[in-house]
Design a protein around this nucleic acid. Sequence first.
DNA 1: GGATGTGAATGCATTCACAGCA
DNA 2: TGCTGTGAATGCATTCACATCC
Lengths: 215, 215
Amino acid sequence: MPQSHAIPKAAVLRLSLYLREATELQEKGVATISSSRLAKLLGLTDAQVRKDLAYFGQFGHPGVGYHVVDLIRELKRILGTDRMWDVVLVGAGNLGRALAAYQGFQRQGFRIVGIFDVAPAKVGTRLGELAVQPMGELADTVARTGSRIAILCVPPDQAQKVADQAVAAGIRAILNFAPASLTVPSHVVENSVDLAIRLEQLSFQLRQTSEKPEG
Amino acid sequence: MPQSHAIPKAAVLRLSLYLREATELQEKGVATISSSRLAKLLGLTDAQVRKDLAYFGQFGHPGVGYHVVDLIRELKRILGTDRMWDVVLVGAGNLGRALAAYQGFQRQGFRIVGIFDVAPAKVGTRLGELAVQPMGELADTVARTGSRIAILCVPPDQAQKVADQAVAAGIRAILNFAPASLTVPSHVVENSVDLAIRLEQLSFQLRQTSEKPEG
DNA sequence: GGATGTGAATGCATTCACAGCA
DNA sequence: TGCTGTGAATGCATTCACATCC
């Protein structure tokens, strides 16, 4: 049973890093891993790794470490990726098409089951095994496949409208790549990735380290 | 003059959101914005907005709010986007090509000045105004253009090697899209975006809200 | 010896609440 | 009155340090 204290949001983010690292270690044939070694691989402290994992149970072995196979199984169970998730994608522009083809999603248990776009010119074009569908078919596809997750790759001025359509279609989680703030009902979870902001943050950090950026 | 206290890392991230929102308000012709209204637009509290901005100076007006034009100018100055940054991109796969064409970078002051790939088949192919170059030309291009920032879109097993090459070429900041942890010297800043992890976090949150995910 | 799991202590970020100004 | 800027208070996350176990 988990501890009765609140789980830090940042801890859950690190679980994904532990899973990624553990998977790589498994592929290399490593059987056990200690908190200190895992921490070093990720640039964290050993205590943090142990505390993060202990929020969710006790699956380490004193004197030994964590069995990589067990660690992976537990992390997948906690994160909910011990199953396949069907995902729909809205916006078949450059980014949308690249994400539709992204192998990393499949590998982590996410399968794109539908791609949608408003532009008639894009509808019908093929992307791997899927063809771009018109927005009108979104609700049908969500209902038929039971998808709970949508990825949004639409222009920022259309993002809110498309998010509303997705929610109306039964979507419960949105990964938003549009540089815009979304408002969603409380039963829907939303997560935004603003690519330009990531560069902006680097720009800020460059200023900090070398006070003279010049040109 | 900034306050003598440490600036929370999360505050800097929010500055980018304030800039994004202020830019949108400016396009709508809004002249001033209060902390409470800005907070509401972003799902934050008014005190947080004020404190974040106050870390970097006093550019608000009691009884009025913040002049949108001034706010944008100050935020750009703080974030370092009051100038153009030249950026190189390594990895001309699906994601790399999509990012090379991404308009959002240009809009925020980032210009891709070189695209590189190891695959001979990709070298020479055109992407907008640029042609994919071989890795051997990376150092030359970085030196010639004075680029400080690199975007990495390479397979995870090549990420560390490519990061090392970029650092050796003079790069000071890396935006990494490969699902792998990078080790970089202390004078280099690194920022990773793992797309699959973002979906994983949604999966976790879905489990939390509705304890029965079923299929 | 070597490692985990965890209360206690520390440090950091957010929120409160109000003085001060337009 | 309306709003900013900010010390003080609160709340949250990380680190410490050690009992415990293989």
